[in-house]
Lab assay of single mutants.
Amino acid sequence: MDPFVVLVLCLSCLLLLSIWRQSSGRGKLPPGPTPLPVIGNILQIDIKDVSKSLTNLSKIYGPVFTLYFGLERMVVLHGYEVVKEALIDLGEEFSGRGHFPLAERANRGFGIVFSNGKRWKEIRRFSLMTLRNFGMGKRSIEDRVQEEARCLVEELRKTKASPCDPTFILGCAPCNVICSIIFQKRFDYKDQQFLNLMEKLNENIRIVSTPWIQICNNFPTIIDYFPGTHNKLLKNLAFMESDILEKVKEHQESMDINNPRDFIDCFLIKMEKEKQNQQSEFTIENLVITAADLLGAGTETTSTTLRYALLLLLKHPEVTAKVQEEIERVIGRNRSPCMQDRGHMPYTDAVVHEVQRYIDLIPTSLPHAVTCDVKFRNYLIPKGTTILTSLTSVLHDNKEFPNPEMFDPRHFLDEGGNFKKSNYFMPFSAGKRICVGEGLARMELFLFLTFILQNFNLKSLIDPKDLDTTPVVNGFASVPPFYQLCFIPV
């Protein structure tokens, strides 16, 4: 058959498939802009700032609406009420993970971030239990974070109060905490193996944040037939998995079943207990991918939040002064901060919360999916439909947070200066898919920041009023603009 005829037939089939998918069930789905064949609503979305586009569309179609990214149908949730109703009140029905062709290629359905069903539930339950087990290797997770915080302070001392970009050092600290939990080992910041790991993690975040990856996920045929950065992403992930597998083999040879040292040991012990169960989800494949998931999810998000926190503290020296006064009063100079201190430091706690609220790190979270046909607000959402959640619409709700575009710790303080919780605080998402490392991340943010401010004054290279804190939105995360500062020993 003539190649031209084959091409026309293929394009015609794709067009018909697109029209059929977009028209099927439209009477039951939430409203939304009319999609174009094949490309859907992509032309109506700013790929570099999806969150802003969703906010604009919500003003037209309401808090629940339908979009098509290519052939992929998505239902968008915008605003606290619908997000709570879906992710919390109907948590089980909305607990699936959205379709990610690239991740599915890399992870093969294993791990904790992109798995679904029984596998996801069992691996998540085990990971939560293990991360909360403060007795691994007779050292609590808090001990590990405190140790890394001391190392971080010593690295900052080496800058000798000269101007520096904190990106690298602030990236090393949370990565080392995860390494300590998974591998029972922290690395020197100049260790070549550690630097290679950091390089792969950072490069992957840069790649994932590009519009090209959005295109690959919406048109998965590209993955096999086109060159691009997605190939580098898959190569980096394969490198990390190979490295983790080597460490798993080392653990198998040296493990003491009665004295687990780290996450890998705990997983291997669980595998041993379930070795007679042919349906067990505790396999080497799941261990390797879960460890890679924890490394990827637990490094860049925390380091970016820390980097943004220091920029905001530079911009608002009056806030920094209040935090340091609270540190001096509650902790002093002669001991290290600990998590028990947080309950006695409402202002510092409010500042950490406000940093996370203000920066809105992951504006749309990772997409969910419905696990069955769901009736939601008089609409029928078919099983498997991807759910896109606007966390921006919750964290920047102007009824809950007056002047949401302003950095103001009073958003989390009552009139008496006591810490005030808010149900709208969802930087880790909400419901059954809430970030498994939430507790660890909150511990790291509090301890790293208090250790830094206990030991250093922060000095800006320019007038604080002239510092730009506008986030650089890159399609996946909101990151701070480049800046330098000086760490002046107190």
Rank of each mutant, 00 (worst) to 15 (best):
D2C: 10
V6L: 14
S18C: 04
S18E: 11
L29F: 11
P31Q: 05
P31I: 08
G32D: 00
P33M: 00
I42Q: 07
K48W: 04
K48N: 09
K48G: 10
T55M: 12
L57G: 01
Y61Q: 01
H78Q: 07
K84F: 06
L87S: 03
I88H: 09
E93D: 11
G96W: 09
A106V: 11
F110E: 06
G111C: 03
K118L: 11
R119P: 09
W120P: 02
S127V: 12
T130F: 14
R132L: 11
K138L: 12
D143L: 08
Q146R: 13
C151H: 12
E155I: 07
E155F: 13
L156K: 01
R157Y: 13
S162I: 09
S162V: 11
D165G: 02
I169S: 06
C179T: 08
F183S: 06
Q184L: 08
Y189K: 04
Y189F: 07
N202Y: 10
I205M: 15
G228Q: 05
L237A: 10
F239A: 15
L245P: 01
E246S: 12
K247W: 13
K249I: 11
E253Y: 11
M255L: 15
D262T: 02
F267C: 03
K270A: 12
M271P: 01
E274C: 10
Q276G: 14
T299R: 03
R307L: 09
L314D: 02
L314G: 08
E318G: 07
T320R: 07
A321M: 12
V323P: 00
R329S: 13
S336A: 15
M339I: 10
R342S: 11
A350R: 01
H353R: 02
I362D: 01
H368M: 03
V370T: 13
K375N: 13
N378W: 03
S390I: 09
D397C: 08
K399N: 15
P402L: 12
H411W: 01
H411S: 02
F425V: 03
P427H: 02
P427Y: 02
F428S: 01
A430K: 05
I434Y: 11
L445S: 05
L449Q: 03
S460K: 04
D466I: 10
F476P: 08
V479N: 15
